[in-house]
Design a protein around this nucleic acid. Structure first.
Lengths: 339, 339
DNA sequence: CATGCTTGCTCAATCGATGAAGCAAGAATT
DNA sequence: AATTCTTGCTTCATCGATTGAGCAAGCATG
């Protein structure tokens, strides 16, 4: 209707002129502290109406430049291709917005160089706080941020220089392995070591999961077969290759496996279907991560679902409290019922 | 090491002082147009080294405020909980970064109010361009942006006031329905109408898919059963309810169905497994959207995979060319082979 | 030697919002 | 009547980067 300017944006100066007042008054009214600045309700109302009519939107760039804190909160995340990270991101946005923070997220594809670059970009945008999710080198990012006076919190993978919120990987893996071992024993009447496939041997989560895997074997009195501990990376192709090579090397494939993430499971399942191995009898699987369709793949799969809501509550608990002590909060994951 | 300031950020003025030069020279060097501004290579090098040592990062707020264009590109997206939107977001980030643009993304949970709010927030952050993905009311967003002089492109769902890039929903649905009809006929020896479940009856994509669904039925000489066209929304629970009510009302459930998104499929599959219907014989399914695990659910499911890379190339093609004519680009989806 | 061109910088205004300080007019107090 | 207080504003410097305009020194040309 009253589109006076087709291209140029309305500023507080425009509104001030229209209202016959000063930019400072307009600013005070629009950012809500007009009472403190003793602007009359009459003028406040007038300005508010005008702003609405003109479709005014603050220039956050200008506002942030001037203010002490930006109220922007950043997150880096490895991938968007699974439910775990998807829900982390969605929940992060919700909780950030609840607190009046503006969330910006960037995906770093598990690439350390990209992680650093992304963190740098976020610093340029003056984030008040950065959540490093599943970062390969969290401490590097913490250092970068620290030198700009920006807080960091590690999520999913812990670091040594900032508070971290992670799953209880050991506990989850222990229980998951127990179940798969039990399922195998129930079906085959004898105990046998499982395959561990997926994840990076160097990352904390994978190491903890392997530890749980080993301890569950020990508990059951089953020796771990070292050739069957394959931390080959998360990518489906990597897991697929492991399976292929395993089938070439050995005559009898394991009857059960611990698959470290749905991403790796994708590769494992693809190989199982394509190769025709396990055609008569599916192996018992345990997957560390949850996906609704995996849950429907059959009753031979157990899953551990990381408790994303609790994890993000913990993250924002740390942010809200302003705590900076370097702790690792471990959130117990949920072991899903089969089927 | 040389962390002179533990909290305060380094600015070009700090660097200028350290280098014994002016802020303007520093700025010119750091944003790359020092040649144009006739700064000597010697000074450029000195400043670059200093900036690196000090861990300098531009203040984008200040930079954007001054510049004509922000080089920030926004995207709103309904959800992060499926592979389709996940890959859209990931691909969007990649292509944006390739072009030196800074992507910001926000998830609006299919909530029209949130969509508008999110768009407004993006305008405040001075985005140069906004991609509205799967927006319930794209035209509203376009208007909002237009009044701030910001371009918009609709993705996934078309609008009437900005260029749109969408899948060929009709074509995809036609082919998908054909296949499911054929699969049913092959198994049962006779033709029968399919169930259509999921999606919003009011959205363009769903309408087009229903049209394809109808035309495939017509082609096959099968009358569509109007009671079996259930555009109940995308949420799993909605689809589940449809199935339950259907089972209560009729004695014989359809032998095949067209499920409008993996999200709806989640509900359908859940019901199938829990209710015990279809226990002896799974229905033939066609799912409009792809998921790797759905592909493994069995050979009774056909999937249409929307061509995300092509769609986003089209989006950036429009952005790069600066075209503003209101066209609808339709990208043919990929009909996945079964199994 | 005067003039003009090139090189290599610096100066200062600017983007839009914010908020401390200040000012004028009226109300209240002594 | 003189003083202080309150109310309701306005003025102006500031945040950090960018960029048009300008300036001084060196060199070349006539």
């Amino acid at each position: 209707m009253n589109r006076t300017s087709p291209a140029k944006r309305t500023t507080i100066y425009d509104l001030a002129e229209l209202a016959g007042t000063s930019a400072s008054a307009v600013s005070a009214v629009l950012n809500g502290n007009w009472k403190k600045r003793r602007i009359s309700a009459r003028l406040a109302e007038k300005i508010t109406k005008l702003a609405e009519e003109q479709g005014y939107a603050v220039n956050m760039q200008a506002s942030v430049l001037r203010r002490e804190r930006s109220k922007i909160i950043g997150m880096i995340v490895p991938k968007y291709d699974n439910r775990y990270f998807g829900s982390i991101v969605e929940q992060f946005e919700n909780l950030a917005r609840e607190r009046g923070l503006f969330p910006i997220i960037t995906c770093t594809r598990r690439d350390p160089a990209l992680e650093v670059e992304a963190a740098r970009a976020m610093l340029s945008y003056q984030v008040d706080c950065l959540i490093a999710t599943g970062a390969t080198d969290p401490d590097r990012i913490v250092d970068l941020c620290a030198s700009a006076g920006v807080r960091t919190i590690n999520l999913d993978l812990p670091g040594s220089r900032a508070p971290s919120v992670i799953s209880d990987n050991y506990g989850g893996a222990l229980e998951l392995t127990r179940r798969v071992l039990a399922n195998c024993e129930r079906e085959y009447g004898e105990k046998a070591p499982l395959l561990f496939v997926g994840g990076r041997g160097t990352d904390h989560n994978t190491m903890e999961r392997v530890r749980g895997f080993r301890d569950a074997h020990a508990e059951a009195g089953v020796p771990v077969d070292e050739a069957l501990v394959q931390t080959c990376g998360y990518a489906p192709e990597k897991a697929e290759t492991v399976m292929k090579q395993l089938a070439e090397r050995t005559s009898s494939l394991p009857r059960g496996m611990f698959v470290n993430s749905t991403i790796s499971l994708e590769g494992v399942m693809r190989w199982i279907r394509r190769s025709g191995h396990y055609a008569e009898r599916m192996p018992h699987l345990g997957c560390f991560d949850w996906d609704p369709f995996v849950a429907m793949l059959g009753d031979h799969i157990e899953m551990v679902r990381q408790d994303v809501p609790k994890m993000l509550e913990a993250v924002f608990g740390i942010i809200d409290s302003g705590a900076t002590d370097i702790t690792v909060v471990q959130i117990p994951p949920i072991v899903e019922k089969i089927g």
